[in-house]
Structures are given as C-alpha cells and as structure tokens.
C-alpha cells in the first residue's frame, strides 16, 4: 500500500458521506419515509464505522492503520 492511499481513501469516504447526506435531504423533500431515510443513515454509519473508526482493528492483530 502506498503512503498516500489512506489519505485518498479518507477523501473518497468523505465525498461519499456528503453525497449520501444530500440524497437524504432530497429524499426528505419528497417523502418523510422512515425506512428509506434510516437505511441511508445506516449506509453512512457503516462507512464511518468501517473506514473512519477502523472497527476491524478490534480483531485484526498487529496491523497499523
């Protein structure tokens, strides 16, 4: 893994989060559906937990993130 790739990964995740937020907002203009909005929220949550919070470091040994 090259040195800049974690930086690039952060940018990509940040952009994905931003796009999902805008989608949430646009969806809410049409419908207040709890299912759709919570699913979108869950998608954002998974991104944060996996890429930003490195949940895998809990069980993966000896790997520097």
């Amino acid at each position: 893994m090259s040195k800049s790739s974690p930086f690039r990964q952060g940018i990509l995740v940040g952009i994905a989060l931003f796009i999902l937020t805008v989608i949430e907002y646009l969806v809410a203009l049409q419908t207040g559906s709890a299912t759709i909005l919570l699913l979108l929220g869950a998608a954002k949550g998974v991104l944060v937990v996996y890429y930003f919070m490195h949940i895998t470091s809990l069980w993966r040994e000896d790997e520097e993130h």
Binding site: T21, E24, Y25, V27, A28, G32, S33, A34, L37, L38, L40, G41, G45
Partner: peptide, 9 residues
C-alpha cells in the same frame, strides 16, 4: 441518525 430523526422523517 439524529439528523434524519429530527429534521427529515
């Protein structure tokens, strides 16, 4: 999760 719960849903 709070944002959609308060503002959108």
């Amino acid at each position: 999760f709070f944002y959609p719960a308060i503002y959108l849903i």
